[in-house]
Design a protein around this nucleic acid. Structure first.
Lengths: 352, 352
DNA sequence: TTGAAAGCGCTAACAT
DNA sequence: ATGTTAGCGCTTTCAA
């Protein structure tokens, strides 16, 4: 059924090893033989068997991508970048589906079973990542972590400059004249939340502003909590923010919707900024100003670097603790504008 | 370095084949030996080598998922579903990145090289799909096609009931009293476009309504063209639609934004319906009524069925032309409402 | 320049 | 109930 080196060799009355080498253009095969082999391969529709090759070389040219889901846009983009970097280097990505209960060690085990040359990981809890990293490295399998802002080092890390991104967002608002800037956090225990909030606080501090505690609210990434938080902030008669910066785009979308329900016009009465620049930012009304994170590029760079590490046979010590910081960039759209010159009177609140 | 059956066998002074069978709980290995082997495997941290297994069984338990990109939400969801179905059956998904120039035959070649047991394909041009399908099937590799509405059969197809979905959308509007319903198409040459438009026309016809030609516009999935089309439709003094149904959610988002720019209130002055129910529909303002396509489920079912085909060794004839139709379901949110009782006067158009 | 042989880690047929 | 052997398709010595 399937044409193999062996069947080609029989066909051409050559040794199987000769065929194998000819197909890979090994210099010690004469040009004429090489040509004959190539012709026959073409004619008989020979397809190399990468599995068999892996068997002997011990290298599969496959990168594992463990994740619980790939639905979320940022994960899909990481995967996309990883897939492209892999492809360019002659590698392929195998998705390793995870259940929430799997430990880091089990994930590593799973990757090892499937003979991946390396692993690139989406952000996950610190302990899990740490366990996985150690289990993997003890088998000599390098790991890269994408978009995970933890400060201690595990293998290669490629992250977004969260703090710098937040700084741009705040400075954009400051430049336009905003002085009362609210902040909607998600889950403040995550690493990127911490770093972003630091960016928010530090940039304001450098401008001589200390935000009121009631203007910094945790939403737990929940629409209802976000809605309530925005409503509370905007109801303040004498100290309402003229802008709200959000931990992500979903939160920003809910913020814009809530503001409009309350009779505020975005951006004239309230500026809103998101974080991540998901595709919905572009389609929002008004289009959402958001801090772009280069998800695809993070996937791409991580994979590229990890392949480099494999191919140059870097030792684990050499990879350990490497870090690449991808710049974040504020994409200014139409959800931000200078605050009204005179603090606009709070519009009549509509009931909800 | 890596513990193998062989090294375990040496350790336990058993035959390598005994170890192999014990690990897989073959009944003919005595319970005591089996236990010894399992204990040692546990202790020495043995990890099976799936590549080696594939080598001898000839089955890799890997499904190929060829695609140019995985960024788009619908593709990511198909992948997610496929990944989960695969996992449950002990399979894994390998992403096969495609460049736009690859022919169907080349794609098949690539899948074959990487020794996939089966292929699940995202929607693509008919000829490409057809070539791929034939090349694959000639090697005995079954293929499933997800979300591709072409009418001729290639392997297994799992599609959305596009026409039924569109019918629900139109009936929802008719039930609320709409009689002038615009339609924004994308690229009418694609199969799903055709089927959806048929759903639109047929449902209206059954209600005794023939839509005006100027209310059916092709946007080519372009924001600028969509904007222009909406503006034109809504400028009509005496025959403007009270609702617009769109080929996808992005088009619907632009429609809502354009309507608002023109001073129309969605849904009171204009109802808007999208198609696909991407996550942005939920975050839109107002939240977008949209026809849900079960992307994950399509990926899941396709993969499940194709694995079934592999494992029951279905002949190609048996798979050929199988089709599963997934129901579409209108998700009613807040972008649709009954039309104003008296045709509302066209609001003063704002300049753009 | 080419052929022969070994072996990657595993499974499965056959032998004991 | 366990051991021995062959072989999956390929790469890589080592011989000729």
């Amino acid at each position: 059924m399937r044409i193999t080196c062996k069947s080609l060799a029989q066909e051409l009355d050559l040794a199987q090893s000769t065929v194998s080498m000819a197909l890979r253009d090994h210099p010690r095969i004469s040009p004429s033989t090489r040509q004959r082999v190539h012709d026959a391969a073409q004619r008989l529709n020979y397809t190399p068997n990468h599995i068999a090759r892996s068997m002997v070389t011990g290298r599969t040219c496959v990168i594992g991508f463990p994740t619980e889901s790939i639905k979320a846009e940022h994960i899909a983009r990481l995967f996309d970048g990883a897939m492209k970097a892999a492809f360019e280097a002659g590698y392929l990505i195998k998705a390793i589906p995870l259940s929430t209960k799997m430990t880091g060690k089990q994930i590593a085990q799973c990757c090892i079973e499937h003979c991946v040359c390396a692993v690139v990981s989406v952000p996950m809890q610190h302990d899990r990542l740490n366990d996985m990293s150690h289990a993997l490295l003890s088998h000599g399998i390098p790991m890269g972590v994408m978009a995970n802002s933890f400060s201690d080092s595990l293998g290669l890390r490629v992250i977004t400059d969260d703090q710098g991104g937040m700084k741009q967002a705040i400075e954009h608002l400051l430049d336009m004249g905003h002085r009362t800037i609210g902040y909607l956090d998600g889950d403040p225990t995550t690493a990127s939340s911490k770093v972003r909030r630091e960016g928010y606080l530090k940039t304001l501090k450098d401008a001589g502003i200390t935000p009121a505690p009631q203007h910094q609210v945790e939403t737990n990434f929940d629409s209802v909590q976000t809605h309530r938080a925005v409503r509370t902030m905007l109801s303040s008669k004498n100290n309402r923010p003229t802008a709200i910066v959000c931990i992500n785009d979903q939160t920003a979308m809910v913020t814009m919707r809530t503001a409009r329900q309350l009779g505020f016009c975005v951006p004239n009465d309230l500026s809103v900024i998101g974080f991540s620049n998901l595709s919905m930012a572009e389609y929002a009304d008004p289009p959402l100003t958001s801090v772009n994170q280069s998800w695809s590029e993070m996937g791409y760079i991580t994979t590229q670097q990890i392949i480099l590490a494999i191919e140059t046979k870097q030792t684990i010590d050499e990879q350990w603790g490497q870090q690449v910081v991808m710049p974040a960039k504020l994409i200014v759209r139409e959800s931000t504008a200078p605050p009204a010159f005179e603090p606009s009177p709070t519009p009549a609140m509509k009931p909800i």
